[in-house]
Every structure is written in structure tokens, then in C-alpha cells.
Amino acid sequence: MFIKSTEIIDTFAEAFGMWGTRVIITAETPKWANAAARAMTGFATSVIGCKCEAGIERELLPEETPDGRAGVSVLLFAFSAKGIEARLVERIGQCVMTCPTTACYNGLPEATETVNVGGKLRYFGDGYQASKMLGNQRLWRIPVMEGEFLIDESFGVQPAVGGGNFLVLGENLKITLDAVEEAVEVMKIPNVILPFPDGVVRSGSKVGSKYKALPASTNDAYCPSLRGCAPKTDLPENVSCVLEIVIDGLNEAAVAESMRLGIQAAAREGVVQITAGNYGGNLGQYHLQLHKIMQGAS
């Protein structure tokens, strides 16, 4: 399959079943809501090294938030509900509660499973914390030096999809960077995040390493500088740069749609191929077939 002059390889992205949650952060101004969201989603690129993957889903208008203030929606993914709870307690406690004027709400109120976050962070209040019930929702008010930090006791969690991906193989750095930057811009749709720096990763990995302690190591088959010395290369001759975009989502359909939009945007003159990373289909439960995803696209 070709889109413009770019060949879309007939392969699949192998994605994994994960658990996901949505956190709504509000503040007096968009600046502080964004500051908290950026801090909370820092060092959350890969679940292997960071224990979770997280990113900003989108900014929220005041009329979209529970307290009528500007907000930011954050998605966070981990391998288990318990893992999400631990990460939320750490990250909200250190990055959101600390940020001036913020409040933090459960963004999945319909979820049937929940984890306890505000109910644990409340102890920071040293006995001065107070709870408020609003319908079935329990909020905790934790006194802080600037006023109060308000947080939901429980946050909804749900099964999710992590590790949707595609690789952009370009003739040179500029073309490849331009392609992925434009792709990232159109891939930011509801229910997905791109956890790597501005959505893009250059250090794609393979499973295992010659060093026993490492579970993953550089994807030498896609490193242009190893074309002549690695055991095998998957790079066409005219490719000198490969960049990857990884997508996590609250459901498979959202991940697939984000990939479709991204591949469509990245395809261009100078992008030789677009392919995807997989492990032979033996590890991940989701196989996102590139050709199937692109059906209907030009």
C-alpha cells in the first residue's frame, strides 16, 4: 500500500492490555493547570522505565470542569489498577498538590472500578483535612499554605491499550522530523496520549540485550548507523533516519484512529516507508494492522 510516495508496510503494531485513568486538573488560570499537568506527566514515557505512561490529553474549558475553572485532562496508564493507584498517589501528591491553586478530579466517573487516591493523600492534612460529599462523590479538602487542595477520593480505572505505534523511515533528519511533528499535531484526539517527548521517540527498542540485566535494548535493525554491522537491518538503502510515535489509549478504536490520522499526515515525499513495531505477535493482545487501519484513507 502506498500513500503518496510512502510505502505502508503490511505489518502490525503490537499493543498491550493496560489499565488507564483520566485525571482532571483545574486551577485559577490555565498557566497553573498546565504547570501541574506537565509536572505530573513528566518522566512517564515508558512503563518499563517509569512504572507508568502518562500525557496531557487536552486542555479543558471552564464549562467542562467540575469547578468552572480552566483545566487540563491527563491520561495515565500502568499494568494494573494497583499500579495506577500507586502512581497517582505519588504524582498527584508531588506534582499537583504542590502546584498553586490546583484541584484534582476523577475524569472517569462512570468507571466501575476505582482506586483510592484522595483518601490516601488526605493524611497530609494532619487531622485538619475535611471531606465533602456531593451526591455519591467524596471530595477531600487538604489545607495548604495557599488555601486548600481539593481532590476526589476515588478515581475510575478501566482496561486500556498501551503501545500502539508506527515508525517513520525518512531519507534524512529534516524530512522525518517534519513528518512526525505534523503527525503528532493531528493525532491528539480524545482518549489517547502520546507519552514520549512531544509525542516522538528516537530510541526504539527490541526485547532483550546482550547484557543480562537489561530487558530491552536499542532496536539495531532500525539504526542507520549500524546498517553494515548489525546482524540484520530492516532499513531500505535510502533511509537515514527513523522516528517512532507511540500511542496509548483508553480503547483500541481511539488508538487505531490516532494512528490512522498520524500515518496519513506523515506520508510524503522523502518518507520512504511507514512500518510498525511488533514482537511477532506473541506478547501483546492487540494487533493493529496498518493496512486495515488505513482502509478508506487516500
Partner: peptide
Amino acid sequence: TYKPTFLKNILFY
């Protein structure tokens, strides 16, 4: 004297 955030939630509700 301050702006309690939780009040906004209750009053919107």
C-alpha cells in the same frame, strides 16, 4: 478570607 474551591463544586451542583 479566600476562595474555597469546593464551594464552586457545590454551588455549581
